[in-house]
Design a protein around this nucleic acid. Structure first.
Length: 322
DNA sequence: GATACAATAT
DNA sequence: CATATTGTAT
């Protein structure tokens, strides 16, 4: 009795596998947008079962649209799939307006106790092996006392962030909106706010240096909202003030453990090289536990290598949905 | 009260 | 340095 969780080597996420019906809702957005080819194919196809098996990725049963939806919502979540799959949350994606099929996911009660319930950590399973920390309890589902570790902004996550910000335009890019569009489960407004703060500083710093540069400077985000809604000529916020338009799609793709696959070449904050067909986003939500501040400082976007972070399981979280 | 932002703390 | 937390203004 007890634990049956088994994530082979990975975190056993629920990478959905097989189902591509996201475009239905994206169609609308496609108009006026750079196009999937230019943008990131976040909506890439799901991982083929064969591949999954090949990598021991845990052969998930089937995943229907519903599952996919859920997965996208959690994005990196549910690592604790052992619990059957009562996942969490019935979030509302961009398609909240209409959902041909969907929803009904089970509304769990995770967060029911309190709205402030931060995302349930899941790191425990991730490092199940090395966790020398306290073993704490296992029911994080309702765990409300667990403290989550620092969020690590992996290149993937950052890219998501940058894409969203770029699409919103620095002007409209505020933490809450960004967080929602990123649709990364577990990501909190605070996380985004903090990152955004840094990002803005970065932009500011760079502003004065628009002269040399190995790669083209970030032209985006200066203050021009990306092309979006054709009518209006400039996406005027809607009366209700709702998300202007969603772009990114649900993630997927585990990206397997390829050691040193090629590293994600990051120029700087990541803006520049975006728009490459690579796609393959991994959900990089990963949090660390303890972190000695005065140590291991890694440089990130300011011109440095960052390609070592390619793995990361997922934490999972409890929806702090609103 | 919620959110955004800037400052500060870790 | 990166991120979190706190403080303050809206």
């Amino acid at each position: 009795m007890g634990e049956e969780m088994r994530m082979t080597d990975y975190c056993g996420v629920d990478y959905e596998g097989g189902s591509g019906g996201d475009e239905d809702r994206v169609l609308e957005w496609e108009v006026g947008l750079p196009g999937a080819s230019e943008l990131t194919p976040l909506s890439q196809a799901l991982i083929p079962p064969d591949l999954a098996s090949a990598f021991n990725v845990k052969p998930e049963p089937f995943r229907t649209v519903l599952d996919v939806k859920r997965a996208s919502q959690n994005t990196l979540s549910s690592l604790r799939g052992q619990t059957t799959n009562f996942a969490q949350s019935g979030f509302k994606s961009f398609d909240e307006n209409h959902s041909p099929v969907d929803v009904i996911v089970d509304d769990d009660e995770d967060r029911s106790d309190s709205k402030k319930l931060r995302r349930t950590e899941s790191v425990e399973e991730a490092d199940s092996a090395l966790r020398t920390e306290n073993s704490n309890l296992v029911d994080d589902q309702s765990a409300r006392a667990l403290k989550r570790s620092r969020l690590v902004w992996t290149p993937q996550l950052h890219k998501r962030f940058v894409d969203v910000v770029a699409h919103l335009g620095i002007k409209n890019a505020v933490p809450k909106t960004i967080m929602q569009l990123m649709n990364v489960e577990g990501l909190t407004r605070e996380n985004v706010a903090s990152h955004l703060q840094k990002y803005r500083l970065y932009l500011k710093r760079m502003q004065g240096f628009s002269s040399e540069g190995p790669t083209s400077p970030d032209q985006v985000l200066s203050s021009a909202p990306v092309p979006q809604n054709p009518p209006d000529g400039g996406n005027t916020v809607h009366g209700d003030g709702h998300v202007p338009m969603p772009i990114l799609m649900p993630y997927g793709q585990p990206m397997m453990p390829m050691p040193v696959m090629g590293m994600a070449h990051y120029g700087h904050m990541g803006i520049p090289m975006v728009a490459h067909g690579m796609g393959n986003y991994n959900n990089g939500l990963e949090k660390h536990h303890h972190h000695p501040y005065g140590m291991m400082q890694q440089r990130e976007w300011s011109g440095n290598n960052y390609g070592s972070v390619v793995n990361s399981c997922h934490p999972h979280a409890s929806p702090t949905d609103k």
